[in-house]
Simulated assay, not measured.
Amino acid sequence: MTHKLTLQAIEPVTHNVNHLVFDRPAGYEFAPGQATDFALDRDGWREEQRPFTFCNLPGSDTLEFVIKSYPSHDGVTEQIAKLQPGDTVLIEDAWGAIEDKGPGTFIAGGAGITPFIAILRARLDREGTLDGSQLIFSNTEARDIILREEWERMPGLDTTFTLTGEDAPGLPHARIDAGFLDRTVKDWSGMFYVCGPDKMVEDIAGLLRDKDVPAARIVSEEARGGPRPGVLVKRAGND
């Protein structure tokens, strides 16, 4: 079912990421980690749907997204960055297989962090702490880290930010490989949540299998045979 949303507010999160707040249609439901197919409500754009993940708590009276834009591609995400309060967009019903299955290690690459925003916020709201959870978040540069201050403030959440494109004070300059995981993962017996670019998710899933982590403890869209919202959010910038 298609729903029309009206933009209430838009504000920058990083140099190329915006937080968008929309009104919420009566009866619209989603679970933390789920996404929706999103289109601009404009001639020539209504058929250009892109998947984006909800970042607010399910009980709020708004629908919110954190969306990375790619201005050089003259596509949907560039147009999203230009939206103004009062503009409308179209979304479909919520979907997605990334869900909260308990404390664990959350491994994200770039815009792949988006399914984890609502999951971690909801768990913190419910439990009051994120004890037992760890976030490993890879980006190209320090300025690309989405919601870094929020992650660092979350009580109980162990955070590790790593960069692949620059050296920055206090942050490792390394890709997430077997050695990095050996040095960084605090608990190999818990759940593992993985979202990011295709190759990254494939590689990390293989590394986890090599460490004898069973499939039942690996949460990703790929693990359930479907598309991954965080990856698709990143892909959307390609057009």
Results as ranks from 00 to 15, higher is better:
Ile136Gln: 03
Asp93Ile: 12
Gln79Asn: 11
Gln84Lys: 15
Thr62Val: 14
Ile119Pro: 00
Gly86Ile: 07
Ile80Trp: 01
Gly96Cys: 15
Asp87Pro: 10
Leu83Met: 13
Glu64Pro: 13
Arg42Pro: 05
Asp87Phe: 09
Thr129Asn: 13
Asp43Met: 07
Ala94Thr: 11
Ser138Arg: 10
Lys101Leu: 04
Pro58Lys: 03
Phe106Met: 06
Gly104Ala: 05
Gly104Ser: 05
Thr129Val: 14
Ile136Pro: 03
Ile107Val: 14
Gly44Trp: 13
Ala122Gln: 11
Ala118Gln: 03
Arg50Ser: 10
Ile113Ser: 01
Phe106Cys: 05
Pro58Ala: 12
Leu124Cys: 05
Gly86Val: 06
Glu78Pro: 02
Arg42Ser: 12
Gly86Trp: 08
Gln49Lys: 12
Glu47Ala: 10
Thr105Phe: 04
Thr88Cys: 05
Ile91Tyr: 07
Gly109Met: 11
Leu63Gly: 06
Asn139Arg: 13
Gly102Ser: 13
Leu120Phe: 11
Ile119Phe: 01
Ala122Glu: 14
Glu48Met: 07
Trp95Phe: 13
Val89Thr: 13
Tyr70Glu: 10
Arg46Lys: 15
Gly104His: 01
Gly112Tyr: 00
Glu47Tyr: 08
Gly96Phe: 04
Lys82Trp: 08
Val76Ala: 09
Phe116Gln: 01
Thr105Arg: 07
Leu130Gln: 03
Pro85Cys: 14
Ala94Lys: 08
Val66Pro: 02
Trp95Thr: 12
Ser138Leu: 14
Arg42Tyr: 09
